[in-house]
Amino acid sequence: MSDDHGSSVISAQVRHVESLLESRGLLDAGEIDTRIDEFLAGGSPANGARIVARAWADPGFAERLLADANSAIREVGLSMAGGLQEQRLKVVANTEAEHNVVVCTLCSCYPIALLGPSPGWYKSEAYRSRVVRDPRGVLAEFGLELPVGTSVAVWDASAESRYMVLPRRPVGTEGLAEDELAALVTRKGLIGTAVV
């Protein structure tokens, strides 16, 4: 697992390259921060909530979402193409038999273009190192006690795909409209450290 990047050699090198580019007029001061802000502006857990609500309301959409998430999310006007290149999105569905939880053990890979910045705990060494070994223990610390009969599937975002969990639809929500359903979905629910 990688160490804290804040004071690493690579971040010093990046700062040096940044200042060289600025001194040669190739980059305006603060331009990178502006670009990062633009990148993040479209990302919010509300996007994931909209996707989940549509999947709950429309079984056909849910099927397409699980088969090819990148195509399916365009139906609700969303995309994984917010960065330099489109990242593959894999949506994994919770069922009575299996609960999914997402982690990046190597660093902190997360569908930022879609969901916005990841929560602090997602990037913590404690979460990254422990959830692959003892997911039930970690989920219990989040207040989530899974039934004994529910197996746990951990997804390590170790390469190019990004993951999102499709939570189970809560009972008693049959009459709700899509926007009301979306309001029930939390960021933790999209990562798998909570149910909805």
């Binding site: 070994r133 997911p135 039930r136 746990v152 997804w155 170790s158």
Partner: peptide
Amino acid sequence: PVWHVRFAAADLFGTGDHTVTVELW
């Protein structure tokens, strides 16, 4: 090709009844 590879936790850690799916070249 990059693959999703599913492991039984017991095969990785000697304990646990969950699975871990890792994306590997």
